[in-house]
Design a protein around this nucleic acid. Structure first.
Lengths: 145, 145
DNA sequence: ATAATAAAGGTCAATAATGGTCAAAGGAGC
DNA sequence: GCTCCTTTGACCATTATTGACCTTTATTAT
């Protein structure tokens, strides 16, 4: 669906990162630009718009001979979510770490949910949490398409 | 007289959506306008009058090169509830205007709610909506301090 | 060691390619 | 004529692409 060169570079890099062991890759800017037949500065553009801290990525680089750009996806190992209803705050923090949620969203939900749950019994809370996980997964899929 | 251009655009888009796997399509505004020999803003008009949240549709877009408009049809169950849902959408819109809420938060909630309501009966939905509205009001107050 | 040179990556502003907004004009059915 | 929906267009906002010029680092020549 997403067809611009920037989109394709983004996709390409994210696949590489996901396949990597440490959620980290190193690339050559000029080489990548060559691969996608674009100017090197477009790679910089993609990095700054799609791999910034807000999106859960850290980029470092070195100029000159043997230069490189390193991209790291900061995330912790996914955890078992079977007991979500027991510790809501922890769950949200966890999702935030895993970048299944953005900073601003997390902050919002963090505030919203306790207020929501005030009026709900445990069963209802569990229902809401389960649905929410599903929704977030779907949302995430849409975002990363 | 024959149906209006807006009607025909609506029909066209709905057929495309129904035929799609994920009840979701992406179009180019200018291209669609060209197809129907109208100005691009008429497409925007159709989207806002026939594909808004009230009708069970979510639209997202991106400007600039290789921009697009994405239309998603959300399930009927999710929107067949009380006026509270509409009220909430309106609140979100207002908060966006007043910058008491971020785009990403609003987008997130728009996705979250239908999925959340999928598994809930009307009574539960009402409870959630009421609590959410209360919570948002409080959140709003905190933000504006 | 130092100076020159080559080999990276970075910045920034101009331009192009989209979609959005809003208010005014048009038109069909009372 | 009045009202509501539609149609239009001028102007706006956002995102992508490109290229000239700059900075940093490694390598080579003296």
């Amino acid at each position: 669906m997403r067809r611009s060169i920037s989109d394709r570079i983004e996709q390409y890099l994210k696949v590489l990162i996901n396949r990597s062991d440490a959620q980290q890759i190193e690339i050559q800017r000029a080489e990548l630009a060559e691969t996608f037949s674009c100017v090197p500065s477009q790679v910089t553009y993609v990095l700054s718009t799609r791999f910034n801290g807000k999106d859960g990525y850290i980029t470092e680089s070195r100029r000159g001979g043997k230069g490189f750009v390193r991209i790291t996806h900061v995330s912790t190992k996914a955890r078992d979510c079977s007991h979500l209803h027991e510790d809501l705050q922890e769950m949200i923090a966890h999702m935030l770490e895993d970048r299944h949620m953005q900073e601003s969203e997390a902050r919002f939900i963090k505030y919203l949910l306790p207020a929501l749950f005030e009026d709900m019994d445990e069963e209802q809370q569990q229902l809401v949490l389960t649905s929410m996980i599903k929704a977030i997964v779907r949302y995430n899929r849409l975002q990363s398409e």
